[in-house]
Write a protein that binds this DNA or RNA. Sequence first.
DNA 1: CGCGTTGTTGAAGAGCTTCAAATCTGGTGG
DNA 2: CCACCAGATTTGAAGCTCTTCAACAACGCG
Lengths: 261, 261
Amino acid sequence: MTMRESDLDRVKALPLFSKTSPEVFRDVTGGAFLQRFPAGTTLMMEGDTVDFLYVLLDGMVELQGSWKEKETTLALLRPVSTFILAAVVLDADALMSARTLERSEILMLSGEALRRVMRQDADFSFAVAQELSGCYRGLVRAVKNQKLRGGVERLANYLVTQRIRQDLIETIVLPHEKRVLASLLGMTPENLSRAFASLAKYGVVVRGGEVTLNRPDALERLARPSPLIDNHMPPADGVVGKAESERWSSATGRSCGYVSS
Amino acid sequence: MTMRESDLDRVKALPLFSKTSPEVFRDVTGGAFLQRFPAGTTLMMEGDTVDFLYVLLDGMVELQGSWKEKETTLALLRPVSTFILAAVVLDADALMSARTLERSEILMLSGEALRRVMRQDADFSFAVAQELSGCYRGLVRAVKNQKLRGGVERLANYLVTQRIRQDLIETIVLPHEKRVLASLLGMTPENLSRAFASLAKYGVVVRGGEVTLNRPDALERLARPSPLIDNHMPPADGVVGKAESERWSSATGRSCGYVSS
DNA sequence: CGCGTTGTTGAAGAGCTTCAAATCTGGTGG
DNA sequence: CCACCAGATTTGAAGCTCTTCAACAACGCG
């Protein structure tokens, strides 16, 4: 419930808020409160009405959708990320469930306050529109990834993307359990296992959560990554500068949904 | 190039513009121009920089994505719909190609003007954010549809949705060629054909572009439509009233991408 | 150390794609 | 009006991909 000053600073640093005036920022974060959740907590179920904009400050959150006893992971979030922004803007019910994968700290901002401020402040509204645009494009990438690529190709591209995001080191570390990764990539855990095995001939060696890419060039020829599908994060998270391509955090959907790859 | 008064009225009626003041509307549509395209015209290729917000006034447009000689349909648009709003807001390049499926009339609004007005008018910015939220949610539904359902289930749900949208008549008319429908549903034309055949035991009879649903109840038990995936349009396009669930045009993605089902 | 979860592997089968060929359809020119 | 063509659709056969079920191994945690 108590909130460190540094927490608010990290929220202010989000693209969504980085350019808002101090007054507006105070208005939006006014009634906010911080909550701590253990791993495996369901924060929200599909269909629930949404009263808050969530901001993940620490830990990890999975967004998932379900139908007929089946579940699938739609996005994996790491700090600092917002989620369910679209539902908040429309004051609609959630289309995804959210649950913590680790012990997490989450800031909850009043949705009603957010909408009120949006109507008053064009710059903030514009920032929200930019954020949503980035999220939208993240999902377009996800749909293309899902419909145009087979399972092995999705995994190969995931590995290529991770390699870039982890600074081109040769042995990358999977940031989540394999069964979660499988669900994100749209396959069963068994199939992911076999997909890894079938990448052995491209120099991919798996030891637990560590994956060594001995022939990144060969893997990349198989993966055929495309800037129109894959969002290769800039290695350093420093200056993002221009929105020339688009703002990174939105682009990846780091704030709205890490979404595929 | 010349523009009927009624065309502008139809644009004004879009949720995106319905509540904007006449002055703001004039600013946004100021440098706009109307173009007519024959069927099969490529309006834009993936990766192109986007200078205009497109508004489909008449005809039909397909949005598609591609990778490695493969193509897939991401959305099918009918009048009156806007498209590539997200790219315009971010001043980014297009993630989808767009081409006309029929002779089409398309209004092109300056993206630069749109962004300028957004920064000046909080209400308009808010409307854009709402529109984008609806588009985002349309894509969330599309991803769930794609990842959670098999081909036959997607087709069954498509038919259930069409039946509702076509006023619950027993013989619905497919609004597009079957191969386009196949691509929208994420399958090959051959597979769509077989999927139709396998729905025969649920009372589905196909004659050309006409599909008769003799046992809609049985079909629906198979389809198991869900409000969290499928967007069953209100039969009458009259009063939409509340955004309680969400604005319909956004909800369906009628304006941003008709997107699956 | 024991136990439950997670990951791997094999076998069977369902689902989907590809290629090829036959059939149907709409539109064109004679 | 009819013959004809190109593209669209359907059907069959073969093969590949993916899922499911079952069993087993590996890991982490108390």
